[in-house]
């Protein structure tokens, strides 16, 4: 096992509810005693229904939010220490759902250069990083284009390049594919996998698409601010009924395998890929 990149210990996040006059009427606990770990280079997925606390948790990973109880470490740094703020943000970059809210430049390469420029990187190196990042996400041929003219998937890859240019050790993606068409979704996921393989970047992916997490090293399932399930994709997706009770689902392949099993075929639980299912069926035939 490598170095721990992200670690939480009994993380709690509470916020105050207020009435119309702004008086505090009580507190709500969005995250409750969460223990989570991501080792350098791992692909960790977080699933959970709307309002389960997964985005709130993600926002702790680059100190947009800090815990009200417990601790969060990013690359060994406690996010609660004010003097660590910029180091934390440089270690963990975030990509959000809507690319239009994240792109600020009028030309692709300027947008990607914005991050490193803010970090005070020397100009020559900024350009070098911009070029490398755009190459890494397969968007180098669009460097002089206007981001407005790109497809959703392309915009999201530019947003990822903007994060990559800051050379983070960890990328946190909060539903990066929710607004994309099927090929756009594939492009983004492939890009993220490539970054992981080539640069050893740790990936934390939050998504509502079950198909996107079958290659994860580990999946955490959240409900009402708690971690309610954790395990490999095979372990998690074997528990179809339990997942459904948390408003989640399984990939369509798993659903079909489960249906066939119910109808009497001898198929094991937790089938995630179509090749696996086809192979089992061939053996049975």
């Amino acid at each position: 096992m490598g170095r721990t990149m992200i670690q939480t210990e009994k993380l709690i996040f509470e916020y105050e509810r207020r009435d119309e006059e702004g008086n505090v009427t009580g507190t709500s606990r969005a995250i409750d005693q969460v223990d989570l770990e991501a080792v350098e280079g791992q692909f960790i997925a977080i699933l959970g229904h709307n309002g389960s606390g997964k985005s709130t948790l993600a926002k702790h990973m680059n100190a947009i939010l800090v815990p009200t109880g417990g601790t969060m470490w990013v690359d060994g740094r406690n996010t609660k220490e004010p003097e660590e703020l910029w180091n934390v943000r440089q270690s963990a970059g975030m990509v959000f759902q809507n690319p239009d809210n994240q792109i600020i430049g009028t030309v692709v390469e300027e947008d990607v250069g914005f991050g490193p420029e803010n970090l005070g990187v020397p100009t020559d190196e900024i350009w070098q990083r911009v070029e490398e990042s755009l190459k890494a996400v397969g968007m180098i041929s669009y460097r002089h284009h206007s981001p407005n003219k790109l497809s959703g998937g392309q915009k999201q890859r530019v947003a990822i390049a903007g994060v990559v240019a800051m050379e983070p050790k960890c990328i946190v993606l909060d539903e990066p594919t929710a607004m994309l068409d099927p090929v756009g979704r594939k492009e983004v996921l492939k890009t993220v996998q490539k970054l992981r393989e080539k640069k050893g970047v740790t990936v934390i992916l939050i998504t509502h698409y079950m198909e996107e997490v079958i290659d994860a090293d580990k999946i955490y399932v959240m409900d009402h601010g708690h971690i309610v399930m954790e395990g490999t994709p095979k372990e998690i997706f074997s528990r179809v009924d339990e997942l459904k009770s948390f408003r989640l689902d399984v990939p369509q392949v798993t659903l079909l395998a489960d249906e066939l099993k119910k109808r009497g075929l001898a198929i094991p639980e937790g089938i995630l890929r179509k090749e696996e299912l086809v192979n089992y069926l061939c053996q049975l035939d």
Partner: peptide, 8 residues
């Protein structure tokens, strides 16, 4: 768009 599987 953006809803969890059950909501979907």
């Amino acid at each position: 768009a953006g809803l969890d599987p059950k909501g979907r």
